[in-house]
Simulated assay, not measured.
Amino acid sequence: MTFEMTAEGQHPVAIITGGSRGLGRSTVLSLAEQGVSTIFTYHSNREEAEKVVALANASGSQAVALQLDTSAPAGFVSFKAQVQEALAGLGVSRFDYLVNNAGTGLHKTIETTTEDELDAVYNIHFKGVFLLTQALLPLMNDGGRIVNVSSGLTRFSFAGSAAYAAMKGAVEVLTRYLARELGERGIAANTVAPGAIATDFSGGMVRDNPEVNAMVSGNTALGRAGEPEDIGPMIAALLQPANRWVNGQRIEVSGGMLL
């Protein structure tokens, strides 16, 4: 299934944060395979971002990589200008889909989490999502869609995840309010909450630590840890016109973890 062309006869355009690796990379490539042009951000690894651009272009879609620190809202004004320039290069003036995916992990108990660490998690996982979405909304087409990436940790709990999970919980509430307030523009907003995924997130904890991987697999109905390719195609599917009536929802994609 491919996405419909816009009313102007153009391919739809998605903006994805954290698109150079992991879930974001999988989302960029899944959308590219379905004819969606992408503007995605990377934090520091330009080389990996260029690899993703090349793979997306090879599937017949256009992709643009822009550097952005999503925890630093002071840079959002200049980023918006870069997005406008990138959109012009894609032959459009507005975009259709926003996927707020960028993030980092924090695995510390409540007692040992410092104020600076709490602020850092807040800045990237909530404040950055709120203010970047706010900055980009004037460039989004009516009838567009927003997906905010959350975590299975807002439903189940593991010691050492309180700060991270709390911010993801805030994003889930924000998503419902986005759906409510943007409904008059026909913009749908949903949350995708992955379970434990084998990526380099949190230093590759699930991917590279056999004990953690075994624990996750043993607590998942489908018997394994997730892979990026379990998530990216699902996000792409949620953006499809066929799912236009899904709005304000939290959709967990965890293989049935801790049922």
Rank of each mutant, 00 (worst) to 15 (best):
T2P: 12
F3Q: 04
G9S: 14
Q10W: 11
P12T: 00
L23F: 03
L29I: 00
G35R: 13
T41S: 01
Y42H: 07
Y42L: 10
A49G: 03
A58D: 14
Q62P: 09
D69M: 04
T70A: 12
V77G: 02
S78H: 12
K80D: 02
Q82G: 06
G91D: 03
Y97P: 01
Y97C: 03
L106S: 00
H107L: 15
I110H: 06
E115L: 15
L118Q: 04
D119W: 13
D119H: 11
D119E: 08
H125F: 12
A135E: 06
I146Q: 07
S150C: 15
F156P: 13
G160M: 09
A163V: 11
A170Y: 12
V171T: 08
L174R: 07
R176E: 14
R180C: 13
L182W: 01
T191S: 14
T191R: 05
A193S: 07
T199Q: 07
G203L: 13
V206M: 13
R207T: 09
D208K: 11
D208I: 08
P210C: 12
V212E: 15
M215I: 06
A225C: 06
E227N: 11
I231N: 01
M234C: 02
I235L: 13
L239H: 01
N247P: 04
Q249I: 12
I251F: 13
G256W: 11
L259T: 04
